[in-house]
Design a protein around this nucleic acid. Structure first.
Lengths: 202, 202
DNA sequence: AAACAAACAGTCAAGCCTGTCTGTAAATGG
DNA sequence: CCATTTACAGACAGGCTTGACTGTTTGTTT
């Protein structure tokens, strides 16, 4: 039946699904959402069209699964970066720069493609919105924690949001040829203002 | 020949091109870039496909023209908003909020669709990039002017860029269901920090 | 070992999009 | 008023994408 345990098949299934999702993410970054055709995905993944359709009946299924996969990558990426964060004086800037780097990664680019596509695709939006909301909240929580900010003080929450919206904006600019140096300098200056504002409010 | 003066034809041409470009912008907002098909544009504009192809041989021609048209709208939009700006105490916040509103308008949404599409479309990028660069510089210049900031002081330039990248980020969030209240509060708080930082540096 | 289910392979048709092409109407210039 | 150019109309073909469909292999269960 289907309720009993199975092993090797599940393994194969997982591997195949993973390959398909990774190929999807790659293509999202390289060719954009509409350029990510199911045919290209199966070719890139080295999977027959039949197998692909077996695991992901429609393109939306595939893309949504890829998004979910993406959010996992995002999570572990961030965790890894967090562990390398220094304490003390330069803490704020280190945190902000880390966020900046994160939102300048291919992961963000792929997610951006999805957001923009989802804006005008109801079915996709339905799948992406809750996911992205969760990730957004989690990122916010993490930022507050890393900065040791006290959101019960008025204005602090808005500064956290501003920081995240800023890195989002920088991430967007980054997809269109902006360089890392510019980002660094902007975030450095931002960190100073943020530090000053937080200190004043504490 | 063609160097002599003509009137009614030129007028008709201008009107037809305008209708096509406006329909294109509308569809960009409603259906996204790939959803903006040439067929839909001609239908929306009430123009035959033949006429459309006569004025804009390819989809890229059409879209690029629409972008150019868009930047003009952006320009006059901003000018109009600037004239309504107050002086004195709340100046900084008024300027920042104005920028925030501007980057939350449909105009930004349409431009976003183009940026994202251009990222993976070399031909489009070639046409869009210089245009957007110009507009970006102009917006930067305007912001500096409106805020009366002195960019010769270290860090001030970065604060200006940060402000613009922040509103870009907020604009992006806005396309995915973010509300205006959140934006207002965030920008209000940032205005304070910005004011403090600018004062400190003067 | 046999029956059954899942995984995989590849072809096919339907639909859509883009740009070309041929043809018609209107307007300008001599 | 006629010739030429520009504006406009609509059919058409080529290419591509998606998802359905049929058939084959591999694994699982009894």
């Amino acid at each position: 039946m289907s309720s009993t345990t199975r092993v090797p098949q599940e393994e194969r299934t997982r591997a195949m699904r993973l390959r398909l999702m990774e190929a999807t993410v790659e293509l999202l970054v390289e060719k954009g959402f509409s350029g990510t055709t199911t045919t290209l995905v199966s070719e890139r993944a080295g999977v027959s069209r039949g197998a692909q359709l077996h695991h992901f009946p429609t393109k939306n299924d595939l893309v949504v699964a890829a998004v979910a996969h993406l959010t996992e990558i995002r999570g572990s990426d961030l965790e890894a970066a967090v562990s390398r964060l220094p304490d003390g004086a330069g803490r704020t800037e280190a945190v902000v720069q880390m966020l900046g780097d994160h939102f300048a990664s291919p992961v963000f680019t792929a997610a951006l493609e999805l957001w923009v596509a989802a804006r005008t695709d109801a079915a996709l939006l339905e799948a992406v919105a809750p996911l992205e909301q969760r990730v957004g909240r989690e990122t916010h929580r993490l930022t507050v924690e890393l900065l040791g900010a006290d959101e019960s003080r008025p204005g602090v929450r808005e500064l956290m949001q501003a920081t995240l919206d800023l890195v989002r904006g920088l991430g967007l600019a980054n997809t269109l040829g902006d360089d890392a140096r510019r980002r660094r300098k902007i975030l450095k200056e931002w960190s100073r203002s943020l530090d000053a504002a937080l200190k004043e409010k504490s």
